[in-house]
Design a protein around this nucleic acid. Sequence first.
DNA 1: TATGAATGAGGCTTCATTCAT
DNA 2: CATGAATGAAGCCTCATTCAT
Lengths: 215, 215, 215, 215
Amino acid sequence: MRPEDRSGGQKRASFIEEARRAQILECAIETFAELGYANTSLARIAERAGISKGVISYHFAGKSELMEQLVEQVYREITQFVLPRMEKESTATGALRANIRSVAEYMRGHRAQRLALGEIFNNLRTPDGKRRYGIAFNEPIYVQREAMFRLGQQTGELRPFDPRVMAVTVQAAIDEMFAYWATYPDHDLEAHADELADLFEHATRAERPGGAADR
Amino acid sequence: MRPEDRSGGQKRASFIEEARRAQILECAIETFAELGYANTSLARIAERAGISKGVISYHFAGKSELMEQLVEQVYREITQFVLPRMEKESTATGALRANIRSVAEYMRGHRAQRLALGEIFNNLRTPDGKRRYGIAFNEPIYVQREAMFRLGQQTGELRPFDPRVMAVTVQAAIDEMFAYWATYPDHDLEAHADELADLFEHATRAERPGGAADR
Amino acid sequence: MRPEDRSGGQKRASFIEEARRAQILECAIETFAELGYANTSLARIAERAGISKGVISYHFAGKSELMEQLVEQVYREITQFVLPRMEKESTATGALRANIRSVAEYMRGHRAQRLALGEIFNNLRTPDGKRRYGIAFNEPIYVQREAMFRLGQQTGELRPFDPRVMAVTVQAAIDEMFAYWATYPDHDLEAHADELADLFEHATRAERPGGAADR
Amino acid sequence: MRPEDRSGGQKRASFIEEARRAQILECAIETFAELGYANTSLARIAERAGISKGVISYHFAGKSELMEQLVEQVYREITQFVLPRMEKESTATGALRANIRSVAEYMRGHRAQRLALGEIFNNLRTPDGKRRYGIAFNEPIYVQREAMFRLGQQTGELRPFDPRVMAVTVQAAIDEMFAYWATYPDHDLEAHADELADLFEHATRAERPGGAADR
DNA sequence: TATGAATGAGGCTTCATTCAT
DNA sequence: CATGAATGAAGCCTCATTCAT
């Protein structure tokens, strides 16, 4: 019976609790990344963590909760890394470039996180059989990126296009960049990110009226 | 004990055999598409096909072989649909547009195939734990698309860019288009495909020397 | 529905029938010898024979019948080889020596037979769980050998001992000789047989009148 | 997930663990002895033990490990019973007699053990299809018995003969004695053992100086 | 006669989860 | 808090057997 949130002080308990949960999540990330969704069992996570299988059940309501926590944590980390870097930019093009590059920068040091996220993202389902995380989970990202594109279109910086399709495609391009890198670890991630930035700059910027080219 | 491919004709035997295999593959596609990789068992496929569990084992050497055959068949179908439509085009831009639109056209009528393919693609692993189909499986597609881009760059139709990154990104964009559509069935697939064609046309075409833009 | 023994002539049918049965039994012997009882399935026997699995079911009422026929056939062969060679001898000691050596001689050329026989002997059980061939199956051999020993004891050629124990032990010694040889194919079978003959000659022959008895 | 052997003391945990393992092994022995190798499944062992099937998998890595542990345990028990009784003897003949009789004495109270051992011995194979325990497993027994015979031959107590063949044959005689007894439970085991002792005494002892020799 | 096809039982194993300690 | 122990379901596979052709 895992402790419910009690208003009382129990600092130490909470500390150990959090440490264990963090440790378990970390080992879970490695396991999902290495063995894939179907081969990742609680037993294997426990084994990697050097703890008893029951401990996981104690700290998480079930395998599903563990995976959801994992997704939430990784997502939070990425957002905290990327957002500030985007907010420094003033133009839509600049923000998009910052977006792509900072995500790349983050992922470079967190390969396992990205892989684990993908495994759960693609596979976890609710008990009724529907995907737990569909593309719908990207909705916040899409919305924010759409807003960015709309702003750029209003200022005339960007050409007219469907902002939703563009937002979806940017995300796909970034995801595939990492998938490609995961398969070919020698692939030059930064160069790929720069190419993507160029690609989407060309794809989105407004036509030049009299017209010189980009950059 | 499934019969090995014998050079002899035995048409009739082969007919029943092939019919069953086709039926099983079809039910497998539906099951993977509907329930996802982890929830798709041979038992459930058999159930959907209305046959005994053992029949699958009789016609396929194992679950892995079944999945590999499934991938092979779907891939073949797609290629046979898309390739002729691309070969009609004379310019790189035209071929890319034809590529995107014909894939969209095909997928529209074969949603389950695409989903099943994705499930297996993302999850099937060899006994030693490595991915059976990595991105590496897209290699033929990449190579062909790269060649197309290089040709366009030589004729001056396309701007300079990394053909590999562009090939990978195009594939990602197409895949995500379907994933998005799978999540939101009301999404306008053709419009999305057109947007993608525009997007990549802008992203790839050569800068105008003195200036005016496209279309 | 396998043909019952009909008094009518059907020579050719019977011929094909017998040929098939012989072929199946031969392949069964090899399979049992090579893979062992637990790993020998009808499918594997059929595979080795290059025929369909159903053929076996057609010619034999079941796996059990096949095994029983196998035992019967091998036993018959051995008896037909050994008996004449024993009957040439006039003394019990000579007959025993002939027995051991002729069995050795036969087995040398029929290693698979001996192994297959052993597998079935040790493992086949009736539906109620009792051994199909216990040691009881050796009863005819024991009886005959006992008679031989009794005769020798009456003539004074052999010392007094329990003929049954001796008969059982001789059989065990012969069997183990082959098991040993099966494990170490370079083992000198003939030398071993001669040693056994010496061993049992010492073990059975009467004490010398002038000499002291045992213990 | 069974606990590896840790150097730490954890007595109590080990106690339950060991008790269960012992219980399972005991039930396995009974099952093998009663139903034979081919009819002994983990399910049946669990059933006899009154536990869930999974418990066996929890305590043993697999069916093979269970069988190997079984063999090891029974072998250890026999050795611990027989060896001290042999070491009391000073002559080779005496030691051999002690050997045969003490084995008989032990087996009398452990019929199931002997049967189970035989089943596994004759049938268990490694994944590559070769026998797990061939005759080679008796090698230590052979070696020790050979040494005993050689010593007796050097002191002149025993006649010249091939010690290996004699060692193998003694083992076969003992084994068959039990197999015979297993089939005919009313058979007089002690009398048989005494007969065997006499038999091998005659077979091995040196010729009497005053008496004529063999053959 | 022979075959391919199908069946359903049973085997071993892995797994998420629960529970007493 | 943590653990070892246990459970029962489910998964994949192999098998002997039956049957229509």
